[in-house]
């Protein structure tokens, strides 16, 4: 198995890990979004969906564990790459011309990633911990209300929306970047992948960000 770890530790191997975990997370986000969108169906539907998940708890736990592993790998490799890449250019340029030769999304993956990580921690604290670890409303299966309460805080909602936009930056580059890393860059198909990436990103950002906006502006009165 030595060859396997050596391969994953090579510069291309690390990118490969980033890409595979990244794709997994892209897929996870789709499921997450579908779940979230049930909020628009009202408290009953959402609460039922979450309750149903409760009934297959062991399976959910396993999936969560896998997810954690994927996140850790993605983050660990990302940080490692960032440190190593910094070391590859110990002295920087006086004049930085990078805006002329590359796009902002691609250059800021570490920054957007780091902020998303902070968001993730807050996000888990707000929802995952509440849902799973004894929030009084969770015990009554009133998950919808937990969400509604959280988003009634304008500051939290604004930060949430901002984080989603940064996530968009990250996804926009990450999507096509993963395909490039897998070597699926072809004159014919790559432009399609880039467009798909953009559509995916827009759907994700609008989908996720619409929820706090909905709760803040349109649902606020019904709490």
């Amino acid at each position: 198995m030595g060859w396997f770890f050596r391969a994953l530790n090579s510069s291309i191997g690390k990118k490969f890990v980033m890409a595979v975990t990244g794709i997994c997370l892209l897929l996870f986000l789709i499921i997450h979004l579908i779940n979230n969108l049930t909020l628009y169906g009202g408290p009953e539907i959402f609460d039922t969906v979450v309750k149903n998940l409760e009934s297959i708890k062991p399976l959910v736990r396993v999936i969560e564990l896998v997810l954690v592993l994927i996140f850790v790998l993605h983050i660990f490799n990302g940080v490692r790459l960032w440190i190593e890449n910094k070391k590859a250019r110990p002295v920087g340029y006086k004049v930085n011309g990078s805006s002329e030769n590359s796009d902002l999304f691609s250059r800021t993956m570490f920054v957007t990633g780091s902020i998303i990580f902070i968001f993730l921690v807050v996000h888990l604290r707000t929802f995952w911990v509440s849902f799973n670890l004894g929030h009084p409303l969770a015990a009554e299966h009133k998950y919808y209300q937990i969400v509604a309460e959280a988003f009634s805080d304008p500051l939290y909602s604004i930060l949430y929306v901002a984080a989603m936009i940064l996530l968009g930056f990250h996804l926009n580059h990450g999507f096509q970047s993963a395909f490039q890393t897998f070597g699926w860059n072809n004159k014919k198909y790559f432009p399609i992948i880039e467009k798909l990436g953009l559509i995916y990103t827009l759907v994700m950002v609008i989908g996720f960000a619409s929820i706090p906006i909905y709760f803040l502006f349109f649902y606020g009165g019904n709490l």
């Binding site: 090579s10 510069s11 291309i12 890449n85 590859a88 990078s98 590359s102 890393t181």
Partner: peptide, 21 residues
């Protein structure tokens, strides 16, 4: 690739600045 890694180059993060320049 092995030699490239040994020489201390960074890894590719697909910014494509290389192609542009």
């Amino acid at each position: 690739v092995k030699k490239m890694d040994e020489m201390g180059f960074g890894s590719c993060t697909n910014t494509y600045a290389c192609e542009a320049e």
